[in-house]
Computed example of a mutant assay.
Amino acid sequence: MTNTAGTSRVGIVGRITTRRPVLRIAAGQSSDRRADTLAVEEPLEIRIGGAPLAVTMRTPGHDVELAAGFLVSEGMIGGAGEFRSAIHCGGPGSGGDENTYNVLDVTLGEGARMPTADDARRFYTTSSCGVCGKASIDAVSTVSRFDVAGDPLEIDDRWITALPDRLRAGQEAFRKTGGLHAAALFDGSTGEMLVLREDVGRHNAVDKAVGWALLSGRLPLGGTVLQVSGRASFELVQKAVMAGIPVLSAVSAPSSLAVELAESSGLTLAGFVRGQTMNVYAHAQRIRITRSSVRSAADEEAMIDEH
Rank of each mutant, 00 (worst) to 15 (best):
T4D: 10
T7I: 11
S8N: 12
S8I: 14
S8W: 08
I12C: 12
G14D: 10
A35W: 08
R47N: 04
G50E: 01
G50R: 03
A54M: 09
L66M: 12
L66P: 04
F70G: 07
G75M: 06
M76D: 00
S85Y: 03
G91P: 10
G91E: 10
G95W: 09
G96M: 12
N99W: 04
Y101H: 14
D105A: 03
D105C: 05
L108H: 00
G109R: 07
M114H: 01
T116V: 03
D119G: 01
R122S: 12
R122K: 07
F123C: 12
Y124H: 05
C132P: 05
V140H: 01
T142Y: 00
S144T: 10
R145F: 11
V148Q: 09
V148G: 10
L153Y: 03
E154N: 00
D157E: 11
R158N: 14
L163N: 08
L163H: 03
R175F: 10
A184N: 09
G188M: 05
G211I: 06
T224M: 12
L226N: 08
A232L: 14
V237N: 04
K239F: 07
A250G: 09
A258N: 07
S264R: 07
S264F: 02
S265V: 05
L269V: 06
M278W: 06
N279E: 09
A282Q: 05
A282W: 01
H283K: 01
H283T: 01
Q285W: 03
T290H: 07
R291P: 13
R295P: 12
A302R: 10
E306D: 12
H307W: 09
